[in-house]
Design a protein around this nucleic acid. Structure first.
Lengths: 278, 278
DNA sequence: GTTCCGCATGAATCGATAG
DNA sequence: ACTATCGATTCATGCGGAA
């Protein structure tokens, strides 16, 4: 099997124009947060953030398939003892632009950066904003199912007579009706909170997010052979994971050193052989 | 020791006017969410929610001490496959009103409502918006420190009577005073994510939130003898916890049946004796 | 007294059906 | 077409009765 990568170096507002209309299945990205990483990205002032982001979002809206999804990893920073509001304003502005704000997932960071301040605790979560072009988007929920809790496990251990009887008797409310549906299952659907650790000790460059994050959304919103786009590629985590999961990828990066680092690591065409008996 | 309770029955916009300026240390409340619980409360349409809430928030701003804190538990509902934006708009509107949006805590619900839909997972988190009147507010971080490692599993989780008694008897014997000193190595400051289960199968009345929620914020933002206000009292969870922690409480409730239920359970003046050797 | 098991019940959401 | 009501779906928890 073969997956293709396209890497573009430059401002994503311009480079996005090279991507055809309705051609991308998933956009997963973590843009530079306002005034963060000012040394590398130049930094965007919180007051200008929405205006800075909107024209890029417009291009993404154009490039995304009607069945596609845009997942935006972002968190507002603290300015003068207050949470900035640019993320809230961005959501409202993107809706006016035509996006649907379908859902907000929470990334609950297991091991967040330690620290102590007099007026706040450690910030251990980030937003994962899900935007869509239409109400009918692709979602493959079975791909991200998780092990069930203890209650169901113990139930599964003893498939006793009483359970089967209850199944057939179909008593009253609640589970009685379709016990067989979930009784045979050992996995449950997840929720909209993701509990992942940050990858603090990265050998090369510290990524903004762990591989598990794009992996979860790539599995959930795309299938093999689909196309994943990260317009703020950085060290290419999204693209690396996309390739591993046999999805085509597009990455845009403004900094040449990051761009070259990724192109050296990932070839434009990656070959994936079937592990089994190849 | 003695704590006083004031209970008012009526619309909180009016009843709040009976509370003096700058007299409340903590407001902790969970208002009726838009179009939810419409059978018990009137139900406010999402489009009208901000206008409905703002005049009440103005009274709360007046009643709160400059060093006080307002914690608002809320979550937007899904309307036509999209998240409503009224909570975002409320935050922006309250800032214009003079509030500082200091922080957003996440309540990660261990047991959220079940269900399966083609386009979304179960919603397992709610917002706990922290607003302040000034940048200098009271915060007693040591009161909510948690054992190193798994702070979620520990005392926040099991608020059983036995644990509570064990806890307070320690304090009563004088053992608790300097515990934080020599235990500080084993304890860590928490983060802004709270992992609590909902109390769904309560025999009496189903509360909107578990006792652990107001308990955490009452410990964090008030001391004994301070005053806690809940303008949407409901079944009085906030007030009950405030009393147990020896804080005065004010509760406002529009429904007479809830009002009477709480007044029967909590006397206007509650006496608290030291459990130890009394 | 324990431990185990059955059971009702949630700040839900979607799609179909009915007025 | 637009709104109101209803049925189907799902799973962690604490309670109470049974072993």
């Amino acid at each position: 099997m073969e997956v293709e990568n396209i890497f573009l170096c430059g401002d994503c507002e311009e480079k996005l124009k090279d991507i055809p209309d309705n051609s991308v299945d998933l956009i997963f990205t973590s843009p530079p947060y306002a005034d963060q990483r000012a040394d590398t990205y130049g930094g965007v002032h919180p007051d200008n953030y929405v205006n800075w982001f909107l024209p890029k979002a417009k291009q993404m809206l154009r490039a995304l398939k009607p069945t596609g999804t845009f997942v935006l990893n972002i968190k507002e920073k603290v300015v003068d003892c207050e949470r900035s509001t640019y993320v809230l304003e961005l959501i409202l502005a993107m809706r006016k632009q035509g996006w649907l704000w379908t859902e907000e997932f929470i990334w609950h960071k297991k091991n967040c950066y330690p620290g102590k301040w007099p007026n706040r605790f450690r910030d251990s979560w980030e937003r994962l904003l899900q935007f869509n072009k239409s109400k009918k988007f692709n979602m493959y929920q079975e791909e991200v199912m998780v092990p069930m809790g203890d209650w169901a496990k113990s139930r599964l251990n003893n498939l006793s007579e009483t359970d089967r009887k209850r199944d057939e008797s179909k008593v009253g409310s609640g589970f009685g009706k379709n016990v067989s549906n979930w009784l045979s299952r050992d996995r449950a659907y997840p929720t909209n909170v993701l509990h992942l650790a940050t990858e603090c000790s990265n050998k090369k460059h510290s990524a903004a997010f762990p591989e598990g994050l794009p992996e979860w959304f790539i599995k959930l919103f795309t299938r093999e052979g689909d196309t994943v786009l990260d317009p703020f590629m950085g060290s290419g985590t999204t693209n690396i994971v996309a390739n591993r999961l046999r999805r085509n990828s597009i990455g845009i990066e403004i900094l040449p050193e990051y761009y070259e680092m990724v192109t050296e690591q990932l070839a434009p065409v990656e070959l994936y052989l079937f592990e089994g008996k190849a």
